[in-house]
Design a protein around this nucleic acid. Structure first.
Length: 489
RNA sequence: GGCCCUAUCGUCUAGUGGUAAGGACAUCACCCUCUCAAGGUGGAGACAUGGGUUCGAAUCCCGUUAGGGCUACCA
């Protein structure tokens, strides 16, 4: 009886918003924390905008983020179907019941009439709402209007003078006066229920114990409570989580950059980083730890620790978290995830041979510490794949201008030529020898070499660059640079 | 306009009447180092405002201000 059952009920009308992902995550974490059930229901009553493609994206994204569901679309369950457009006959039964009880009525008002009413109310400084023009239509009136070709909507008769109190687990008690609500539509003229109605019927029929959703639904809640009452159903617990804001503190939207889960996936963010980040937006475990696995989040998540105030989406922190996970994940995994980006950049072609894969692991290992997301790997890894070396910037030019440079580079070139293969200890030794023989110090040999090999004064460990590049490429780049310098003189 | 929500460092947050207001990201300095990054150490940085309540308020109450949400035959 007291078992926890929560749901995530997205409307498949576009890209899966990051805020939706957080709502899903909170629901999922709560369910898993309590040993309850997590249900996924599709709210596709907006026929215009809902698409199957969007639904599939959302579901795939949930899975990618590591969430599974016990009942719902794709997995089935005892309270199905889980797509609202497949439950139309269910809703109609309850509409019928409300109609019979006199709790709902047919309304034939046209859009123009409604707009005029709205306008007038707004002018008077009142909350725009339906005033109930069709409240007391006789059956004869209805018949006549339908003869004229008017299709009715069904409105819920909102009781007058009542105050509806919403008990919210994160916000406390919030009350609304019925006077400000107005008879709202529960069944559209095309016989499709509205959100407010379908959500109540489904949550009840699916025995949802806790409705955890975004704060934007808070003003809808009194309407839903009215419906629960009229249908004689007991209320679930409500928990309204505050919104995720953009940098300018308005609701996160496209102009704030990437807002969909898919976009982050495409940039090569790791799902555990996104989970970790999203969990910390509006929830905090109280301790001083910031890094959490899904497993740890499951153990620690409670509704009591959900914050009331809205949270700004902080890309810097996501980047830090993702960078952390990229650095600390097993090298093979990061390599596998990086392959598509490298391939897209034209650096590699799949399938990879065993040897090439092993080599690629070294590449990834040498640059992973620079990354905020895998997409960025191409700019750092390009030094291993580019054909000719391009000198980047003044600083690099200056390094090459040093008078010891030709001697140093050709000495290295000779040593390299004399080796079978470049290994890390050998490279180290080789450079040491060059320094000793020519009497030049570390920086004076490392920097020119770095620039000759990569074109830049910055980059990964130089020994490692030599090893990864290998004897042939090192020789080639050295020769070219030597030629270039000679040509300039 | 009306209804509703919110208010601690730039950002995410801890705090639930008595704290030097703690942590993390970002930022700055230093260390490490051929460089950059990573890592380590340290610094700077906040209770929106005005009234109450109280011996004592970031914490409780009211107003103001600011931000946000909702105001559809969208969810």
């Amino acid at each position: 009886m007291s078992s926890v059952r929560v749901r995530f009920a997205p409307s498949p009308t576009g890209p899966f918003h990051i805020g939706g992902a957080r709502s899903a995550l909170f629901n999922w974490l709560f369910a898993r924390h309590c040993g309850g059930a997590f249900i996924v229901r599709i709210e596709d009553t907006d026929l215009e905008r809902s698409t199957r493609e969007s639904e599939e994206n959302i579901l795939a994204a949930l899975r990618w983020l590591g969430m599974d569901w016990d009942e719902g679309v794709q997995v089935g369950g005892p309270d199905g179907p889980y797509r609202q457009t497949e439950r139309l006959d269910i809703y109609r039964q309850y509409v019928e019941r409300l109609l019979l009880d006199g709790r709902a009525y047919r309304c034939y008002c046209t859009e123009e009439e409604l707009a005029a009413e709205r306008e007038a109310l707004l002018k008077k400084g009142e909350m725009p709402r339906y005033l109930g023009r069709c409240r007391n239509l006789s059956p004869e009136d209805c018949f006549r209007l339908e003869k004229d070709g008017r299709r009715p909507v069904i409105r819920f008769r909102v009781p007058e003078g009542e105050v509806i109190n919403v008990r919210d687990l994160v916000r406390g008690d919030v009350s609304f006066e019925c006077g400000g609500i107005g008879d709202f539509i529960i069944l559209k003229s095309d016989m499709i229920p509205t959100y407010n109605f379908a959500v109540v019927v489904d949550d009840h029929l699916m025995s949802i114990s806790h409705v955890i959703r975004a704060e934007e639904h808070l003003p809808n809640t009194p309407r839903q409570i009215l419906l629960y009452n009229a249908l004689g159903w007991s209320l679930p617990e409500f928990a309204h989580v505050s919104l995720i804001l953009g940098k300018d503190r308005s609701k996160m939207s496209k102009r704030h950059g990437a807002t969909s889960v898919e976009q982050y996936q495409e940039k090569g963010y790791l799902p555990e980083a996104l989970d970790n980040f999203l969990a910390l937006l509006g929830w905090s475990p109280g301790g001083e730890e910031e890094i959490f696995t899904l497993e740890e989040l499951k153990q620690q998540f409670t509704l009591e620790r959900v914050a009331k105030s809205p949270a700004v989406f902080d890309l810097d922190k996501l980047n830090w978290l993702d960078g952390h996970y990229i650095r600390q994940s097993p090298l093979e995994r990061v390599t596998d995830l990086a392959v598509p980006f490298l391939e897209k950049a034209g650096f590699i072609a799949t399938p990879l041979s065993r040897g090439k894969y092993e080599w690629l692991k070294m590449v990834v290992d040498s640059v992973r510490e620079y990354l905020n997301c895998l997409e960025e790997i191409t700019v750092h890894a390009s030094i291993y794949f580019m054909d000719g070396v391009e000198i980047e910037g003044k600083e690099a030019e200056e390094v090459l201008a040093g008078e010891q440079v030709p001697a140093v580079l050709s000495a290295i070139q000779k040593k390299v030529a004399s080796r079978e293969e470049l290994t890390n200890p050998e490279v180290k030794l080789l450079l040491k020898e060059v320094g000793k023989e020519l009497g030049v110090k570390g920086k004076q040999i490392f920097m020119p070499l770095r620039v000759a090999l990569t074109g830049s004064t910055h980059g990964p460990d130089l020994n490692q660059i030599m090893v990864i590049l290998g004897k042939d490429k090192v020789s080639d780049r050295l020769a070219r640079m030597l030629g270039k310098i000679a040509g300039q003189v």
